[in-house]
Amino acid sequence: MIDMIRQPTTKAEQYDWWRRTVSGERVPRVEDEPKPGFYKRRMVRGGPFVPVEIWLEQEIDPETGELTADERLMAVCNGQLCDPVKVWTYARAISAEEYDALTGVRERIPDMAVIDAAMDLGRMAAIRP
């Protein structure tokens, strides 16, 4: 019997699709295969964008560098854990800077905290700081 070494997926491999997409490359997207990265989506049509992050959870032995469990995709949408496959369908790749800006927008603009209703984006532009 051959002892298989379980090497974790590298960060470069994990974020390749997202990095290429954000840089403007048209990369094929598979509907049920979420990719780690930073995204935005709307919870309802006409609603504000909310931040989405997808990442690969890895349990790695600190001594050997090998995986101690299967890798699994995780996601957070608007601060709540969620199913990466479900959120992936509507997610648009954005830069890490845009993601950081979106994560704080609810505190800066109270109307943006209402994520389950459409909003008047023209009125929002008028009140921007």
Rank of each mutant, 00 (worst) to 15 (best):
P62G: 14
D120A: 10
A125P: 09
P8Y: 03
D120P: 06
I94R: 00
V27Q: 02
I115C: 15
D61C: 09
D61N: 12
P8M: 02
E53M: 15
R19D: 00
I2E: 15
P34H: 07
M74K: 14
W18C: 04
E63P: 10
M112T: 15
Y15V: 07
P28F: 07
I54H: 11
L102M: 11
A91S: 05
G79N: 11
A96Q: 15
V27A: 04
V50F: 06
R72W: 09
D16F: 03
K35F: 10
L73N: 13
A125I: 12
M112D: 08
M119T: 09
W17Q: 11
T10V: 11
R45S: 11
G24Q: 01
E66F: 13
D120K: 01
N78L: 10
E63K: 15
D100K: 13
E71G: 08
E59H: 10
K11I: 01
R19Y: 01
S95Y: 07
V76Y: 13
Y90V: 02
N78G: 12
N78H: 07
E25D: 00
I109H: 04
M112F: 08
D61A: 06
T68K: 07
M74Y: 12
F49Q: 05
R29M: 07
P84W: 00
R108M: 09
R41H: 02
P48M: 02
V27W: 06
E59T: 05
L67Y: 00
D70M: 05
A118N: 06
G65M: 10
V22Y: 10
E31M: 14
